[in-house]
Design a protein around this nucleic acid. Sequence first.
DNA 1: ACGGCTTATACG
DNA 2: TCGTATAAG
Length: 674
Amino acid sequence: MPVARPETSDARVIAHVDMDCFYVQVEQRKQPELRGLPTAVVQYNEWQGGALIAVSYEARSCGVKRSMRGEEAKAACPEIQLVQVPVARGKADLNTYRSAGSEVVSILAQSGKCERASIDEVYLDLTDAAESMLADAPPESLESIDEEALKSHILGMSREDGDDFKESVRDWICRKDADRRDKLLGCGIIIVAELRKQVLKETEFSCSAGIAHNKMLAKLASGMNKPAQQTVVPYAAVQELLSSLPIKKMKQLGGKLGTSLQTDLGIDTVGDLLQFSETKLQEHYGINTGTWLWNIARGISGEEVQGRLLPKSHGSGKTFPGPRALRSLSNVQHWLNQLSEELYERLSSDLEQNKRIASTLTLHASAFRSKDSDSHKKFPSKSCPLRYGVAKIQEDAFNLFQAALREYMGPFGPKPQGNKKETWRITGLSVSASKIVDIPSGTSSIMRYFQSQTTIPSCSASGFPQEHVAVTPSASESCSEQKSAETLPAMPEEDITVTYTSPDLDNSYRDIDIVLEKFPCQDASCQSNEAKEFPTQSGTQTKTIGRKINNSKEKNRGMPSIVDIFKNYNASPQAKEETQEDSTVSLTSNRGNLSSSTNHSSEVNQEVEDRRDTEWGYKVGEIDQSVFDELPYEIQRELRSFLRPNKRPNSGKSKSGDGSASSSIAHYFQPLKR
DNA sequence: ACGGCTTATACG
DNA sequence: TCGTATAAG
C-alpha cells in the first residue's frame, strides 16, 4: 500500500523519463529497416502468434493494441512487423532490453540524482541543476532557447498551432516576473530537453518526459504527450489537472484500491477525493494510505528520487499455463535448472560489472490441486541464503521447491492415501535473488576469486559429494524419496547432509562456500528442532552467527564472512555517499558505471575468456598483491584464512583466530557506522 | 486455464 | 525476518 511521505519544504524539480515503446525501439535499432513501419514485439509464444508486449505508434494508429495476440494484430494491421523476444533456455530472455535500459540510465544519471524506476523509466531530481542554472544562466539571459524545449507542453497554457505556441513557451520559460517555482521548472524544461536529445543521439532511442515538482506529477505528465515529447506541470495547473483526472489513472490507484474508492466511496476523479477528510480516509484505508490519499488529492507527494541506478533484485521465471502445467518433480527440476542458470548468469554479470553480491535466494511457484476440495491454495514462497554457483542455486532452488511443496500438500505427503498419482500441478516457477550489497572498490581480484570458486564443475556431475545442503532430515527424506535415480544419477542416496570429504590441496579452494547469511536452506523445510538444537550434526551447519565463509570441515564459528564486512560497509553513511556520487568518480574499478560496453559483443567475449582463464587456473598467489595490500589488515587476515584453509588447521590456539578475529573486524568497521 | 515476465513496496 | 499481496509496465 502506498504510504505518505512528508513533502520537502522547498520546491523540487523532478522529471520522469519514459522510453517510447521501448522494446520496439530496441528491435528497430537492431534492424533499422523496421524503422517507421508498424511494428510489435511478441513473446516467444507460438500460440496464436504470440502475445504483444510492445507496439509501435504506427501500429497503434492501425488499431493494434497491447494485449492482442499476434494473429489479431495481423488482422488489424496486415502489414505489421512482428519481432520475437529472444529465447534462451526455453524461456523469454530480456537481457537485450535490460542492457539497453542501462544505456539510457547511464546517460540520464549524469545530471542529477537518478532512479531507475523500471527497465524503461527513470526519475530524475534536477533541483540542483535547475537552481544552478537559475543562478548562473537563467533562461531569460539566454539569447536562444533549445528548439526541443520550445516544443514542450505546458499544462494550463493554451495551445494554438503553428509557431505561435513556441513563442508562448519561450515567453513562459523566460518570463521575468515568474514565480520561483515556475522559473525552476523552466530550467527543468531546458535541462530535460537537452537530456532527451542526448539520449536520442547516443542511443537512438526516443523518449517522453514529464517535469513537475514531485514524482507523482512528473509521472502523470510524462504519459500525456507521447511519443518523443515532454510535458510540464506548473504549480498553478495542478488542481485543475487533478480535478478531472479519473482516479484510476493515478499511479497506485489502478488496481483494487482505486476500485474501492470508486465503488465504496463513489469517487471517480482525484478531485472527488478532496471532499473527504483525512480521518475519514484513514478510517477506510488505514493511517498511512489514508494520509497518502489525502495528500495526492492535493498534488502533494514528498516521495524522493532514490539515487539508485541498478535493480534491487534479479529474477527469472516462467509460467506453464493450462495443459503445460508441470506434473512431475523431475520436470520441475528441469525448469528450475534453466531458471537458475539464467539467474546465475545475471548474478555473475552484476558481480562483474557492478561489484555486487546477492544474499537471498527465493523460490516462488504457483500451483493448483486438481483433485480434492480446495484446488486453489497459495503455494508458499521459500527463501534461503544464496550460494554462488550454478549448481548450488539449482540445488537450493529445488530443495526450496520441495519444502514448499510439502507444505502446500499438507499432511498428505507424496502419497496421499491410495495409489493416486500426484495431485499437484505447477503453473508457474520463478527464482529470484535479492538483498544485493555493494562490495567496496579495490577488490577486483578478490572478486575474480569469488568467481573462480563459484563456477566449479557441478558437484553432482563430477562425483563430488553434495556439500551440506543443510536440508533438515525431514526434508531430505522426502527428497531422497522423490528424487528418482534417473533425475539425479550422481546424487548420493542417503538423506542426512553429506559430510565433507577433505579435498586435496590443489582443489581446496573449490570447497569454499560463500554463504551470505545464516545457514543454507534454513527455511527449506519444517524447521526441525533437531536442526536447531544439534546444529553441529553436520559440521558445516552451525548456528552461531550464521553468516560465514565456510571452509570445508572446519567450523569457524564466530567468524564472519567477508560479506558481513561488505554489509557493514554498505550500511555506513560514508558508503551511501560514495554509491551516490560514484558514477562520476571511478578510481580503480568501474563500479557504478553501467556497463555501456556490454553491447559490444567482442568485449563480452573477451571478458568471458578472461573469466575462463582465472576460472580454471586460479592460484592463491594470483591475487593482485597491490590489491591485497590495499585491504585492511583484518580483511587480509580473513582472506588468508580461507584462501589456505589447509595450512591453517583451526585447532590449537591460533592466537587471533576465530572469535577475536570477528570482534576485531567488527571493531574496525564500527567507526564507519557513525 | 493464458497475457508473460519482472521489479518494487507495504503490511503483518 | 520472512512470506504475502498489490501494483505497474
